[in-house]
């Protein structure tokens, strides 16, 4: 591939890096990443991946921008309140880098559409804010064999982990079942300090870039936990569970389930 003059300027700080170079930049430009959620995490992840020249970014989110999102969801703005979040993010990213094809899907991710969405991508990013989606994305990535960079935030704490199906752990190796509905509060209930998703989303974007260029270590069999109040990063081991219901030796989950219904039943 020949770079244009503009591309040589735009990506010069990548090309200079021995670990990236022209070849790494070509890989980035020809890669495809699916980001689940255009919220606190999806915004910075998408922003940095767009800046880095990831060729195709698919963003899926069925929410509209609200005023209360703008304290942390940096791809949106005041004028876009009421606009679908995926559409708003697309406008921001396209203004940043015309090399990137941004596909905005204003729909809910479900067991019926997720496989088609991820099967031809290189990496999946989970920036969702609820457990049914988190487990759906995990199980789909394990079943299809796609790397997944998962992030989560609440109050002053965040966590990141990278799932390479079959090679390393998955989300269910760590937390086999979803917690009962209502047990873990949401950001809506518990709050989140505005810069936190920037830090966790930045770490997720970095994991994605390393996966695509094939350099460095990723958080396989590890979870990185950030505590903003204590200013501490802890990297904890997450062993692959041979009895994991989805990625273990004798899996009981061999197809996608109705995660929402399962979750709601837990209320009873």
């Amino acid at each position: 591939m020949d770079f244009t003059d503009d591309q040589i300027h735009r990506y010069s700080r990548h090309i200079i890096l021995p670990e990236v170079g022209g070849k790494g930049q070509e890989r980035l430009l020809s890669s495809r990443v699916v980001i689940v959620g255009a919220g606190g995490l999806g915004c910075p992840v998408g922003y940095y991946l767009t800046a880095a020249g990831v060729g195709t970014i698919v963003m899926i989110d069925n929410d509209n921008v609200e005023l209360s999102n703008l304290q942390r969801q940096i791809a949106h703005n005041t004028e876009r309140v009421g606009m679908p979040k995926a559409e708003s993010a697309k406008k921001t990213f396209q203004a940043l880098n015309p090399d990137v094809k941004v596909i905005a899907l204003n729909e809910k991710i479900t067991k019926d559409n997720i496989i088609g969405l991820i099967e031809d991508c290189d990496v999946v990013v989970d920036g969702s804010d609820n457990f049914p989606t988190r487990y759906l994305v995990n199980d789909a990535c394990v079943l299809v064999g796609k790397p997944l960079v998962s992030g989560a935030i609440l109050r002053f704490e965040g966590q990141v982990t990278t799932i390479i199906p079959r090679q390393g752990h998955c989300y269910r190796c760590l937390f086999e079942e979803m917690p009962p509905a209502g047990l873990v509060p949401s950001c809506q209930e518990a709050g989140v300090l505005g810069a936190l998703p920037g830090i966790i989303g930045g770490l997720q974007a970095m994991e994605v870039l390393k996966l695509i260029i094939g350099k460095g270590d990723v958080l396989q069999n590890r979870m990185l936990i950030y505590d903003a109040l204590k200013v501490s990063f802890r990297k904890v081991k997450v062993p692959k569970n041979p009895k994991c219901p989805v990625c273990g030796e004798n899996p009981t989950i061999t197809e996608l389930q109705d995660y929402e219904a399962d979750y709601c039943r837990m209320n009873f």
Binding site: F3, I8, H9, S12, I15, I16, G21, G22, K23
Partner: peptide, 13 residues
């Protein structure tokens, strides 16, 4: 740095 960027792309090829 474009002198080096161009040179590096050339040597990569």
């Amino acid at each position: 740095p474009y002198t080096f960027v161009r040179s590096k792309l050339a040597i990569e090829s």
